[in-house]
């Protein structure tokens, strides 16, 4: 579905990502693990075409998307949910959803991708259903987190880049996010998730890459990572 090869990215004079390669298969949930500053958010942004300086090759659903504009990438069915949510605070919940709207799409093999509508999404996130006309700026952090995910789903993505969905929200919302990811997976959406919390990633992911100082240090199944205390200790928690 998504394949990143020998990818590098810089910000100003500082190189942030080095020779990064990763794959996400269809219907898979893959966790990109690492400490803060390891390069997770940069990886996400770079895949989405939001980093000015990057090198290497990115293929998505059969298209070469390296060097493409963010909107072109989004129109191919790659959805992006930023860490800091970036809700349009003047727009209501429904209007925010409308900005994300894109026509229904198919995978390159002709299989239709899951289609999302406002109704479906408000049912998936009942909190949002209670406040369809509330401006985004007057919502709590957790509600904004749900809205940013829902907004991306309005584009009927084939694959979603989900940047730290558990960051900075209360445990109750973290649980909701975990459940949502599992729901999405069931619906056939592939997900590349960036995460610091092994326990959260363990609940939802099939495979994991561990990122440190802009390089992939380890990759394997999530179960392996959960067992591998050495890797965790070296690059992640504990």
């Amino acid at each position: 579905m998504l394949s990143v090869e020998n990818f590098g990215a810089s910000y100003g004079a500082a190189q942030i990502l080095y020779d990064l390669s990763l794959q996400v298969g269809r219907g898979e949930v893959v966790a990109l693990m690492g400490r803060n500053g390891a390069g997770k958010t940069t990886t996400m942004k770079a895949i989405m075409g939001l980093m000015a300086q990057s090198t290497g090759k990115i293929r998505f659903d059969g298209h070469d998307i390296s060097g493409k504009q963010p909107y072109e990438i989004a129109r191919l069915g790659l959805g992006f949910t930023p860490e800091d949510r970036r809700i349009f605070s003047d727009l209501t919940v429904l209007e925010n959803l409308d900005i994300g709207r894109q026509p229904p799409r198919k995978f390159s093999d002709g299989v239709p991708a899951p289609v999302w509508t406002e109704e479906k999404l408000l049912a998936l996130f009942p909190n949002l259903g209670e406040m369809p006309n509330r401006p985004g700026g007057r919502m709590s952090g957790g509600e904004q987190q749900m809205l940013t995910v829902a907004r991306t789903l309005m584009g009927n993505p084939l694959l979603m880049l989900l940047d730290e969905p558990s960051e900075g929200v209360a445990p109750l919302i973290v649980e909701l996010m975990a459940n949502t990811i599992l729901e999405l997976k069931k619906a056939g959406v592939s997900i590349l998730l960036s995460e610091q919390n092994v326990h959260f990633a363990e609940l939802v992911s099939d495979r994991a890459y561990v990122l440190e100082k802009g390089q992939i240090q380890w990759n394997g199944t999530m179960a392996e990572l959960a067992e591998n205390i050495d890797i965790q200790r070296a690059y992640l928690t504990v």
């Binding site: 504009q69 963010p70 930023p82 994300g100």
Partner: peptide, 9 residues
Amino acid sequence: EMVGALGVN
């Protein structure tokens, strides 16, 4: 920028 990342040219 976010509008762009949501597929709007």
